[in-house]
Amino acid sequence: MVHRRELDGEALVLGNQGALYLNAMTWWDHATGSIWSQPTGEAIAGPLTGSRLALVPSTLTTWAEWTTQHPDTVALDAPGRRLAVGLEMMAIVVDLGTEVVSYDVTVLRDAGVVDDVVAGIEIAVVVDPDDPNRWAVYSRRVGDAVVDLERAADGLVDRRTGTVFDPLRGIARSGLMAGRVLDRLPAFTMFPKDFERLFPDGRSWPEG
């Protein structure tokens, strides 16, 4: 996960608290010593209790895919090697504050896209059927309109206007909204079992 480590314009330096909460890691901040929870981004003890760090959109994918999408990327100066964990075993999690939803990557891979409403915001979760490491979460609001996306041979098609969007870049390639771009929303991946533990009140897609 990636968080903005900033509160009221002041940068925070965080360290590893060495404790688990919600079965996930906790941090301490160097300025106040408050203890923070990773999955909620919220301080659970100390002077900053109740403060929350914003989530930054990030992508869990392969190095090959990341460099294709971002040729100018830099790489952390550290060893990189193949891991046994594939994304198809994980869930894509969308946390919009008042509601958190987990999407099954295997089911999504067959569907290509799911239109949903999370915390009152119309969203679309997209997975490339050919490679589940390629995925994105978008707001379906484009100006005053809301698009309803479905998978087609040439991309994602808005059922109302026929606009065709690039599935992974969110850019409208043709149709009424050509040139418009879908806004990306913060999302992350985790194992489905972890999701059930960390977000007992969360919703899972598909249901049941």
């Binding site: 990636v2 959109p57 190095w63 999408q69 100018d72 790489a75 550290a78 060893p79 990189g80 891991l83």
Partner: peptide, 25 residues
């Protein structure tokens, strides 16, 4: 970087820069 293409990474991209962090590390 010389990483294996199948290396799993967390990637973040802003307006001006993109960064990748290998999950194994």
């Amino acid at each position: 970087a010389g990483w294996d293409p199948e290396t799993l990474v967390i990637g973040v991209a802003g307006e001006r820069e993109a960064k990748a962090y290998p999950v194994g590390f």
